[in-house]
Design a protein around this nucleic acid. Structure first.
Lengths: 360, 360
DNA sequence: CCGTTGTAGGCAAGACCCCTAACTAGAATC
DNA sequence: GATTCTAGTTAGGGGTCTTGCCTACAACGG
């Protein structure tokens, strides 16, 4: 239980001021007072403290830049060197890195194509280093196209599941490059978070249908990852196969000859040419399980081939015992967007919490 | 965002004192100071305010009951009339009601057996009235053996699902009897909450196998109910039937002739006599779906016949693609226990929040 | 050029809230 | 009756937020 103390009040004020500044980029103390609802003396004191801690700085800019009469005001904003967050995505076709600052601005984007999953381990640190150069990186988020162990952040191989990127420990590889925590999650989970921000729906399922098959469950406004982080790994859900017999979802594609030889990945071009109704029937079985167990308000379909089959899937869903809306995903580069949003959030929280501690 | 203010500090103090008093039943101001970590004057002021608001009262009891030397201290505790919470369970065999006070003590327990689901509507208010007599009831929780709509609190009938209690609106029936909110939830969800308190596991699934079939999902330490409150209604999950063909879970029992004629309920005595392995195989299919989608750390088996089949179910689970621990439920009267714990929590929170407002 | 107007920011006083330290109250013990 | 020990109160100090008033300063209008 929180203990009452003067310091608690002060830290709330500082947090309030800091967050307002993050949202508005630059403000005078008078504007901050109006925006936060605090009194002018309180804001002035708070700003003084934040400047002293090196979190906030006078921009040098002054008000009367066409603003009219009155005394000149001093604009304050976050200090230049408060730090940024690193955002990375790891996919079979390459590694991407970028930095995001506390305003949400992106800098230093780099992409590095790779030929084989084995290249990821070497590409990851080098791409990161490139994006990180000349930035004070405080923490990072990583999106990976494979299941992620919730506690360790390592990519894990589930039996018979697609394993696109391969064995990897992003935390170990990236920690030396930055001064804070590294959060790793599955690309579908990040995508769901990005979609959540747009949809504004508290309970939904995100079905990723691409080379790999994945699903994220958002319950009460948060992605639920389960005990080890493997919630939504739907490859083994029992569904209806081509001839109507029951089989695991992933095996439907094997049965149809739509898996890439020597790999667990789905052959997307070949699938696009195949009968959409058979595929939609299998997807319908998965959606039945989803709806039954998780009761989403809507099922969002993403991935490289999922949205193209939306009509067939919707039609299939009207035949299911329980109805649910099915819509196509709407966010571009959803994994990157979701990971970036989370990084921004973590960065802001980290800065705010740093404001609590007094330097001496 | 919380605004800083002196009043915020004060309310934190009051809440601290009040919660400490709820946990310890009666304390002197000196003991409260030690327990809360606040100073003696602060505690004295807080107690003075709480007494003034009628939340706390001097018990009249004095310390030197063998406690040794020193000045006598005055014991304070919650006021007699702060109110209680009503806890009700609605099951096919009857309606139970009891009152729980802010210490967690139970008073006024009543049970009323019923013959048919149609009797619930009349029994509910009368049983409640009996338990409520002479108590100041501030709010209530209700456990019902059917799916509950999350927004309205009404019992709903899913096609082909067991519908044991029948059409009912507990909120409408009970609201006139008390002065606060009524929270209705499915009995399995309450049971999972009770089990959660004992297990201390943040991610698990609770499988209820009785006359009805149900499931609750606990993710990140909370029961997740889904958009309309129908998460975990597993009757339609596709699983393996007696001859190995795929079919909805509930239909397996129809196929085996284990459903009570003229009803959707399962005939438990007959089931106990049937081959456990066939049943366990069907349960295994449900667990596969659960594990795949929700990734629980453990699956808890409850209900009238579930725990008896634990060995067969465990054996079946070792053959599944992903391993998971299966254990029997350990809480007695789990739905009542869970609903009671929630009622206690709500009651305490309601009292604490009442402490915030100044009377005048 | 000079007074008016309007905004940014500072200063002072006051209201609270919490804390420490010292003090009073009152019962048991010697 | 003095001592000891504990409960609770009082006094004073430090901190935070607020209101209200003041100064600084630039634009504007006559």
């Amino acid at each position: 239980m929180t203990k009452p103390s003067q310091e608690l009040l002060r830290s709330i004020s500082d947090e309030h001021v800091l967050r307002t500044l993050m949202a508005a980029r630059k403000l005078t103390r008078a504007e901050l007072a109006i925006e936060t609802g605090l009194s002018k003396p309180t804001v002035s004191e708070s700003v003084r403290r934040l400047v002293e801690q090196g979190l906030v700085a006078d921009t040098g800019e002054r008000t009367p830049g066409g603003r009219g009469k009155g005394r000149v005001g001093s604009f304050y904003s976050l200090a230049e060197d408060v730090g940024v967050a690193l955002v990375m995505t790891i996919a079979p076709d390459g590694v991407t890195a970028e930095c995001v600052d506390a305003y949400g601005d992106v800098a230093g984007r780099t992409h590095h194509p790779i030929d084989s999953p084995a290249d990821v381990a070497s590409a990851l640190p080098s791409v990161a280093a490139e994006a990180v150069a000349a930035h004070n990186v405080r923490l990072g988020t990583v999106s990976a196209a494979d299941p992620v162990d919730r506690r360790t952040g390592r990519l894990v191989h589930l039996p018979d599941s697609p394993f696109l990127v391969g064995e990897l420990d992003p935390v170990e590889l990236l920690s030396p490059l930055l001064h804070g925590p590294v959060v790793v999650d599955n690309d579908v989970n990040w995508a769901a978070q990005a979609e959540h921000a747009v949809l504004g729906v508290a309970d939904f399922a995100y079905l990723h249908l691409g080379e790999g098959l994945g699903c994220a469950l958002v319950s009460d406004g948060e992605v639920r990852r389960g005990h080890s982080g493997l919630a939504g790994e739907i490859a083994h859900v029992i569904t209806a196969g081509p001839s109507g017999t029951a089989m695991p979802f992933i095996e439907v594609f094997g049965e149809l000859g739509l898996r890439r030889p020597g790999s667990t990945a789905i052959d997307v071009p070949r699938l696009r040419a195949a009968d959409p109704d058979v595929t939609a029937r299998a997807v319908g079985g998965v959606i039945t399980a989803l709806v039954t167990l998780a009761d989403p308000e809507v099922v969002v379909i993403g991935g490289t081939w999922g949205p193209a089959l939306l009509d067939a899937i919707s039609a299939e869903c009207t035949r299911l015992p329980r109805q649910v809306d099915v819509v196509a995903a709407s966010v571009e580069q959803p994994s990157l967007t979701g990971a970036r949003a989370a990084a921004l959030d973590l960065l802001r929280t980290a800065l705010v919490s740093r404001a609590g501690h007094r330097p001496r």
